[in-house]
């Protein structure tokens, strides 16, 4: 809806006031700080800007940030789907309890979950002590970062996929079955395509959230430059060194990628809606 249209009386009156209010809030909270960020970064000359954002340390941090975020979102897509499926399709004792736990990473301060994960996965932690002898180091490696990001992103996938699974009617599966399709075929050709738009949305949300995640990662990452240093941390380091312009430049890169992500989400949703819910 990019055109202003107001023909029929709306449920909520005062279109002018609402639009003005929305625009004001959007400006004050979102646009102005972002514009300031871009302006700040624009204050440096272009070659220096390129230097900052393509320095080996920065590139390594992008690779880690986006790689770990991508991996954790992918893991979430699989296990989040399984979790959502179980919650929607089966009734078992404690289902509501599990359903409530899903939201915990939303509410928990991320630093807390970071510390908790570190305690568990460190070499002498509950799980870490068993993994270490097998040669798997979780804490202070990229694996630990991925685990933390997976925890943070999980509710996004589960919560977007849950309603989509609930919408897959049993009748569809029954119909496919009477037509001769086996279980795997039904899963691949009926269930996945129906849930796919929601699944992709969940994936993108989890990915975007993981890219921006800071609190939980800094505790489990170990923060070794070039190895376990994520971009948000690098920005923070630049700020501590009073290199505001450099921080702003890196911020701009993150901003651009986040924006592309969100745009992709919206396009995906639009595409899914067009495919699934054309006027009846």
């Amino acid at each position: 809806m990019n055109k202003v249209r107001q023909r029929e009386p709306n449920v909520i009156p005062g279109f002018g006031i609402t639009l003005g209010f929305t625009t004001f809030f959007l400006c004050a909270i979102v646009l102005i700080p972002l514009a300031a960020l871009v302006l700040k970064a624009g204050g440096m000359d272009f070659s220096r800007f390129i230097d900052v954002i393509t320095s080996p340390r920065a590139v390594a941090s992008y690779r880690l940030s986006f790689g770990a975020a991508m991996l954790s979102a992918a893991v979430n897509m699989v296990f989040g789907f399984a979790l959502a499926w179980t919650l929607v399709r089966y009734d078992f004792p404690g289902r509501n309890f599990v359903d409530a736990i899903i939201d915990m990473p939303f509410a928990l301060p991320t630093a807390v979950s970071g510390i908790a994960l570190t305690a568990v996965f460190a070499g002498n932690g509950w799980i870490g002590q068993y993994l270490e002898p097998m040669g798997i180091k979780v804490a202070y490696t990229w694996i630990g970062i991925t685990v933390a990001l997976t925890l943070i992103g999980m509710p996004f996938v589960v919560r977007t996929v849950q309603p989509a699974i609930a919408e897959v009617q049993r009748d569809l599966e029954d119909a496919a079955e009477t037509l001769g399709a086996g279980r795997f075929y039904v899963f691949r050709r009926i269930i996945i395509p129906t849930v796919l738009p929601a699944l992709l949305t969940g994936f993108t949300l989890a990915f975007a959230r993981a890219v921006g995640e800071y609190g939980s990662v800094v505790f489990i990452a170990g923060n070794m430059p070039m190895k376990t240093e994520i971009t948000p941390l690098l920005i923070f380091i630049k700020l501590e060194e009073f290199d505001y312009v450099g921080a702003a430049a890196l911020g701009c890169v993150m901003l651009a990628i986040s924006f592309v992500m969100l745009l992709a989400i919206n396009l995906l949703q639009l595409w899914g809606r067009k495919r699934m819910m054309v006027s009846r």
Binding site: D171, R189, M276
Partner: peptide, 8 residues
């Protein structure tokens, strides 16, 4: 309710 595959 027809149970058609809506994505096909």
């Amino acid at each position: 309710n027809y149970a058609l595959f809506r994505h096909m």
